[in-house]
Every structure is written in C-alpha cells, then in structure tokens.
Nucleic acid binder design. Structure first.
Length: 737
DNA sequence: GCAAGGTC
C-alpha cells in the first residue's frame, strides 16, 4: 500500500480526488478520514492537522516552584503527541504501507511536519521507502506534476525548523518562568516572554514612551473663504503651518477683500491597482472596514473550509502560473458579481498585478468558488466580497485622477487650493474601499478676481505619535519579520490575554513597562527583532548544509546561560521593578475619604474589592465583579477622578465598567428602586432563598415572623441554625424598609 | 500553568 501524507484534511481530500481516476473511497481510521483508491496497488491519502506532536520538557520539570527557571536551559526535551487520533491512524496505516509520500506544504515548517509524521511511521515500519511531493497550489496540473516528479525529503530544512522549535521553547519557557517567579505571578496570571511576543510588546511600550515624552508645539493655520456662483470653497495659506504667532498675525492682518487667481495648473495622476492579497494585506484591508485581525482570520478560516476562498495563510503576492486565472474569473459570469466579471473577461489580455513577495507554499488569497449572499452570514459576506473585489481589481486598469493646483494672491501673500476628481475609475470600480473623495471647487480662470468672504486663523498644537492599531502592528511585525502570517494575530491576542495591553489602538499597562524594562536591561536579546533575524540566518545555514543544528543550538544555549547569569545577579532589582509595575496597574485613584491610593485588593476569602492603602485607619471600599481580569484604563471619571475600569474574562473581550464609584452608586440606586417596587414580604417563607427546611430551622431558633428576622442578631441566628452568616444578612437587608 | 508554529 502506498501512503500519502498531506498537511491538512482538505489537502488530503483534494489530492486524492485529483490522483484517483474514480471517486476515492472515504474510510475512517481511528476516527480520522482517509481516502483510498486503486485496485491492485492501493493508495491511501491522509491529512494531518499541522504539527501533530509537540516539543516539551519531561514532567519532572513541570513544577514552577521546585524547578529553577535556568534548569530548563539544558534540560532534555521530549516529543509528545498533540493529536492522538491522527498519530494512531498514522501508525495503523504505516504498518501496512510499503511506501510513504510526504505531501505537506512546501515550506520549512511543512518539511518539519512531514518529518514528524515520517518518524511516527518509521517507528512502526523501520525500513519503509519514502519520498517527497512538492507543489505550490492544489490544482490537477500541479498535483499530477508533483507526484510524477517526486523528490527527496530535505532533512536539513526540517532540522532548521526543529532548531527553531527548540530555541523558542527553551528561551520562552525559561524566561517566562523566571519573570513569573520574580514577580510572584503564578497560576493563571503568569507573565510571559517569547522571541516574537516580547519584541512586539517592546514596540508598543516604546511608542507609549515616545508619547509620554512628547512636548506639543503650538502652531497656526490660516484659511480664507471664497465663493463663485454661489459655491463656497476654502483656500489655505502656502505656509501650511505657522510656527510663530507674530508671523501668522501679520499675514492674517494683510488679508484684504479680494483674491486674484494667479496661476492654475491641471494635470492627470495615475493610480495603480493593488497587488494580490497576502494574509497581512488581507488583515489590513479587513481592519480598515472594521474587523479585528483575530476576527478577520476566524471568518477567513470558515470561508476557506467551506471552499469559498483559497487558503488564507500565505505570504505570496504573485499568482502562480499553475492557476488558470481566466477560468477563475469566468465562474463569476453568473451571480452577484457578474457585471464585474464580464467586464474583465471582455479584456484581450488578463494581466494581474504582482507584489514583491513570491513564495512556494500557497497562492495569494483569491475567491475559490461563487457564493450567494444568502449562503453566508453578514460578516462572512463582507469579507468574501472583499476578497472577490480585490481579486478582480488586480486585473483592472489604472484609475485616473484629474488634479488641479490653484494659486491665489491676496496682497502678495500666496494661498493655495488643490482639487482632484476621479475621471477614470479603473480598478476603483471593482474595489471601492477607502477611496479618497473628490475634492472639487468651481471652475476658475487665471487672472480672475474673487471677493474674500471670510478669513480664519486656527490655533493648533502638534500631536504625539498615535498608538498602534492592530492592523498597523501586524504590518510592522511583517516588515520586521516577527512571527508568521498564521501567528501574528495570535501573538497580539496573547498580549491582551496576559493583560500587557488593552484597548484598540493598543495601550500598554505598567506591568508591560516593567517586563520590557527588566528584559531590556538584563536579557536584551529576547526583546529585539534581531533574535528572529539571526535565527533566520542560522536556519538558512542549517538548511543549506553549511552548519549543523547541533552547533546552532549549542551556541544558543551558551547565550541563554549568560543571560541567566545577568538575571540571577539582578534578581532583586528585577523583582522589585516588576512588583512595582504590577502595583501601579492596580491603582484606581485617590481615596475620597483620606487621599491615599485606592488599589485592587483581595480579601482573605479570595474575593476582590477596591480598598484604601490607608487601611485600617481608612475603611473606604468599593465592590468589584467576582471574575475576570481588572484593567485600569487611562480615562478618569469627572466626578470622582478615579480611573475607569475594564473587566476582561478568560476568553471574552473586555467590557467597560466605567468609574467603579459611579458604578457602585448606580448599583445601589437600582437596589433601592427594586426594593421600592416589590412589597415587603409578609411571611418569612416569602423571602427568596427561604424554603420549607430553612423556615423550620429559623422557627426552631425562635424566628417565625419577618419582624423577628429583621430585629434579631444575625450572628446568633447563624450559630444556632448553622445557616451561613452572609445569607442571613442578605435576608435581613431584603426585609429592611 | 510555560514559546511559536502548524491547523480547526
């Protein structure tokens, strides 16, 4: 039997249907679908789910308190299955197979995934024959060609990928453990460190520091209002920003009643169509129409698994020659986009744009089949439409703008106005997103004199650089080669779930500051994008056979050992600064009673509340929700000058609680209203929470009326009846009018 | 309970 192993389920199914002359037979093996065909010599195709095994430390290293972080540096590593069913299916099939073809994705990680699967097969069938099939798109032509010309597995390339796994695990896990222990943040709330997440966090923290250090400079802008034939328009002084008030005042002062059109230039500007979608550009475009990266990718995934779009994780911006692009447009001749498809098909030549990056694993994102609007949810349709329109736009002509530059003379001061008008929509007809609006003004002539209707001088200030939005951050990560198309949005989600950042655009917490600072001082390697670029270079050398994985790993472990020397020597300082950062994140503002800091505290029973640092002299307190991470934002309440709070659940998005004081007062007000709306219970059994058994218990303690319940000592009742004190107090509150 | 990389 010939076994073919693909990287994913869908790839397996499609490869089988291309290679098989008849419809392949679907068979379940250990709960996993496989596809069988052929009469005498059977072939079975099975799909993995990416990596099906994971690199890990032996269980003996699991206890964070007992095993010191630095011991992880030289710890042995083990491989554990993460997809037991697939592993078991591979073993079953591997035993019977005489030959195995690795047909995983054509990239470094794909090679490693293939070798991982091969090792499982070899574990049950030591001498099995093996080979590699290489393809860049799952089309009949490409797949047939790949299986007719199989090659050898590139073990060097797989080793390169493996070295990445080891380095990421060893550095990430050991440093994560170190700073979590140093800050005493254990359990669910640990602090994490990693080759990709830490440089990304450093970018966000650096930007926030720039914003804090920013000193605004005042400047002035001068505008004049003109009109012609009843149409009003504004012109602006040639000097867009005046940095000196005196100069602005002088110019403003000389503006007279008339403006002379001193020159008029018209020209045309060409606007090139966009390049094919890779993941980053898709995410950015989705982001600009209101989708978060994580959301966009989740929806893209479902569009992909339902066959509407091609594989959504790709760096490629050049359509491979193996895809018949005309055919791909022809499928749209009917349906919602027919008007657009027909116009494209009428062209003699279909020449798509090309991006800078061309890779071998997957094509750029394009629509794979025609969807009806009724088949998709609203969000799905929006993103599907985005992909379709982008695909069409890459074949379309340039857009053309007519631009007009007009200069005006007002008492020898030059003013300007720029107009532009779309005259040929070209690709923008297919892809109408984020189109700049036409800027128009009435037709003018050189030498014409217009009356000045009004003038204005605006007081302005330069603004600090903006915080990064998620789309922008993903673009920056790509430019710096941090993370991959499939992981960047996950890394950003990780920063949110660690409470390192909140809001969009992203704002770092004080904890993030402390973590980045601690790492930058004592373990700078992990905070820099260079670690990734050096790793990439090393991996390339391993792949080319110019060095060995062993040498690279040894070097990496030496470096990490040195890092740990630094960290251990400065443990106290790091610990203090982390704990200070964590403390700052808990400050809600000043106590209205005594002026000390109000902070998030925990009672002995484990419940959370806002308490005063002046305790026990001051007992001011406010309640907090029972669960979720408390995030302190930079917004303050006008009434109480306390910071607004957000609450973030394990997997849910953070919700705004607002000012905790206002929130508490509102809650109290609600309670009052609710009470006023419901009549006072007449019998104790009318009180919610008191059933027959409880009523009898209370009776035996001498309480049979509502008045008796209200006026008895709660502690006494609790003692004699064994009913929890808290319950009794709540009942008493419920009947107190 | 740790990373980052696949995929769902």
């Amino acid at each position: 039997m010939h076994l073919i192993i693909a990287e994913k389920q869908i790839a397996a199914r499609r490869i089988a249907s291309i290679l098989s002359p008849k419809k392949p037979q679907k068979k379940r093996i250990s709960g996993i679908d496989s596809y069988e065909f052929g009469n005498d010599e059977k072939t079975i195709v099975i799909g993995l789910s990416g990596h099906i095994v994971q690199l890990d430390f032996p269980p003996a290293y699991n206890n964070w308190q007992k095993v010191e972080a630095k011991e992880l540096v030289d710890a042995e590593l083990i491989v554990t299955p993460t997809h037991a069913k697939i592993v078991s299916a591979l073993k079953k099939l591997g035993k019977k197979a005489t030959k195995v073809t690795i047909a995983t994705d054509y990239d470094r990680e794909g090679e490693l995934i293939g070798v991982e699967a091969l090792n499982i097969v070899k574990g049950v069938n030591e001498n099995i024959e093996y080979e590699r099939a290489v393809y860049s798109a799952i089309t009949p032509a490409a797949i047939k060609e790949a299986f007719e010309n199989t090659t050898k597995i590139d073990f060097n390339l797989a080793d390169a990928g493996h070295s990445r796994q080891v380095i990421d695990l060893v550095w990430g896990a050991s440093l994560t453990r170190f700073i979590s222990l140093a800050s005493r943040r254990l359990g669910k709330q640990f602090l994490s460190v990693g080759r990709v997440q830490s440089p990304t966090l450093a970018l966000i923290v650096d930007r926030e520091k720039e914003r804090e250090a920013f000193v605004p400079t005042p400047y002035w802008e001068i505008y004049v209002d003109l009109a012609k034939n009843g149409e009003n328009f504004k012109i602006r002084h040639k000097k867009t920003r005046f940095w000196e008030k005196e100069e602005a005042d002088r110019v403003f002062g000389v503006i007279g009643d008339e403006a002379l059109v001193s020159s008029l230039e018209t020209s045309t500007k060409e606007d090139k169509p966009p390049t094919p979608f890779n993941t980053t550009e898709f995410i950015r475009a989705a982001n600009s129409i209101g989708f978060t990266p994580a959301n966009a990718m989740r929806i893209a995934e479902s569009l992909y698994t339902n066959g509407y779009i091609s594989y959504p994780r790709t760096d490629n911006t050049v359509y491979p020659s193996t895809i018949d692009l005309r055919e791909q447009i022809e499928i749209f001749s009917k349906g919602h986009f027919s008007e657009y498809a027909k116009k494209l098909l009428a062209k003699k030549e279909l020449k798509p744009t090309k991006g800078k990056k061309e890779t071998t694993d997957h094509p750029p994102i394009f629509p794979a089949s025609v969807a009806k609007k009724s088949q998709l949810k609203e969000d799905e349709w929006k993103l599907y439409e985005l992909v379709v329109r982008r695909f069409f736009a890459t074949f379309a002509e340039n857009a053309e703008w007519e631009t007009m530059k007009v200069r005006f003379d007002i008492n020898e001061e030059e003013f300007r106005a720029n107009g532009s008008r779309l005259v040929k929509s070209g690709w923008r007809w297919y892809y109408p997103y984020n189109a700049p609006e036409d800027r128009l003004f009435p037709a003018l002539e050189e030498g014409e004199i217009l009356p000045v209707n009004d003038k204005e001088m605006l007081d302005k200030e330069t603004n600090p650089p903006g915080r990064y939005g998620q789309g922008r951050l993903i673009k920056m990560m790509e430019d710096m080669a941090l993370g991959t198309k499939a992981t960047r949005h996950e890394i950003i989600s990780k920063l949110y779930s660690r409470a390192y950042v909140h809001g969009n655009p992203l704002q770092p917490t004080q904890t993030a500051y402390a973590v980045v600072e601690g790492l930058e001082n004592y373990a700078p390697t992990i905070t820099r994008p260079d670690m990734t670029s050096t790793l990439e270079e090393d991996m390339d050398r391993i792949a080319e056979g110019n060095t060995s994985e062993e040498k690279v790993l040894q070097q990496s472990r030496y470096m990490l050992t040195d890092v740990f020397k630094e960290l251990e020597d400065n443990r106290e300082k790091i610990s203090e600064s982390l704990r200070e950062g964590l403390r700052k994140d808990k400050i809600i503002g000043k106590c209205p009673d005594c002026g000390c800091d109000l902070i998030v505290r925990r009672s002995r029973r484990g419940s959370r509340f806002i308490g005063c640092e002046g305790y026990p002299d001051c007992t001011f307190s406010l309640p907090l929700p029972k669960s979720g991470h408390i995030l302190v934002t930079d917004k303050t309440c006008d009434k109480h000058s306390l910071y607004h709070i957000k609450v973030k659940g394990q997997k849910k998005r953070a919700w705004d609680l607002g000012c905790p004081y206002c929130n508490y007062l509102e809650w109290k007000e609600e309670q009052k209203k609710e009470k006023a709306a419901t009549p006072r219970p007449e019998k104790i059994s009318d009180i919610p929470g008191i059933g027959k058994v409880t009523e009898e218990k209370l009776n035996s303690a001498g309480i049979s009326t509502v008045d008796e319940l209200e006026n008895s000592d709660a502690n006494e009742i609790s003692k004699t009846t064994n009913i929890p004190l808290g319950k009794i107090i709540r009942w008493q509150e419920a009947v107190a009018y």
